[in-house]
Design a protein around this nucleic acid. Structure first.
Lengths: 211, 211
DNA sequence: AATGTATTGACCATATTGGTCAATAGTGAT
DNA sequence: ATCACTATTGACCAATATGGTCAATACATT
């Protein structure tokens, strides 16, 4: 299956993946309709079952896909030379938004994953990797001396990360709600305003330069 | 419809509401199944359609219910004499968790609301009330002099609120994932640890008492 | 026993389901 | 033009699920 998919025109492949992510994200496995998936992807029923031999195989593919994609893109695009945690977190946010831009259904789908009982080996393996990756991403080559040392470092990271995530989630929802296209530049510049505040309170005096 | 429902044994009414919130939260309107709803509520098909004359009426009732419930409970249980924003936010979080405890499906359902095009007058009215309520809840009778005055007050509130929300969301997901019952006391004591950090960085010196 | 209400679940016509497969369209080489 | 080959279609299938109905019960109160 994988091989036939690889050969496929990537624009069409993305259309299928997006349509399927969306349908599974909106509905439980049983209620998710392959008819809807092909309709929204703009392909025929036959073609879907040519690429995936069953609904279950399609679902399994997607489950692996969302993890793998996020991991790959982050590892590929992250700049490990960045030592400032604020810029690092901002980077990751931008990278994530890029993925969401290409695969809009990935978020909704991702949230449903842990509710389902499915336990294939790939999923187990990837889920083991994720915490480690997260740790690396938020600590590797980061200069910790900039922070006031009367506060637990992990908590600082958490609070910064939460703020950025919540802000971008809220902005994205707002834009979707009003039917606009997602404007990532606008979100990033909004993030900067909160970054300034967080720098001010979490960094030592004279340690606030942001390149 | 409303009148018949009111008379109903409240335990059974909650079972129906919860089952319906859950089903509509998991599935799009069309795919949500009244058969599933009655099965999980432990009632007969006939009874559901005795209380609600159609699927649509049931859905409309729920949409109104989730807004109204949240508003009512917050207004009822909030302590307006509390002047400390940290305690105020903690209060609201606890109140919200209480509602979620009683109506576990309310969150998932709530997130789907804005995706649907439905626009009845009640919804419009309530959605107008909500921002105002939120503003009151986070400012009314709150002592703003405790905060350092080199930072925009609204941003401070936002960051605190985001941190508390994210923390409780993550903890609740974790507990659900591991199949435990939601332990709100544990969540609240975890919140306190982050509160301490936030107090330390956002308050003026000597303004950190939390009774 | 009688009256009134709360609740059931078999039943309905219709729509939808995941999946198949013979047929067609498209492409590129000769 | 012809052939070979692959990519794609959509009508079709038996099986199941759909929202909603309603005559029949169960249950309580007098």
């Amino acid at each position: 299956m994988e091989e036939i998919l690889k050969k496929l025109d990537s624009e069409k492949r993305d259309r299928i993946i997006n349509s399927a992510l969306d349908e599974f994200g909106r509905n439980s496995y049983d209620k998710a309709s392959t008819n809807n998936i092909v309709k929204n992807a703009g392909i025929s029923k036959g073609l879907l079952f040519h690429y995936f031999k069953s609904k279950q195989e399609l679902y399994d593919y997607l489950e692996k896909f969302v993890f793998q994609k996020m991991i790959d893109v982050i590892l590929e695009e992250i700049d490990w030379n960045e030592t400032d945690i604020f810029n690092r977190i901002k980077q990751i946010t931008i990278i994530k938004m890029g993925v969401i831009d290409r695969y809009p259904g990935i978020e909704a789908f991702g949230k449903t994953i842990y509710e389902r009982k499915s336990i294939n080996e790939i999923k187990v393996m990837i889920e083991k990797m994720v915490p480690d990756l997260y740790h690396q991403v938020y600590t590797k080559n980061i200069d910790m001396n900039r922070f006031r040392d009367d506060i637990d470092f992990d908590k600082i990271i958490q609070i910064i990360q939460w703020a950025i995530e919540k802000y971008s989630e809220e902005q994205m929802e707002l834009m979707k709600k009003n039917g606009m296209k997602l404007d990532f530049l606008k979100i990033v510049s909004g993030i900067d305003l909160y970054m300034d505040v967080l720098r001010k309170v979490f960094c030592k005096e004279g340690e606030m330069e942001n390149d």
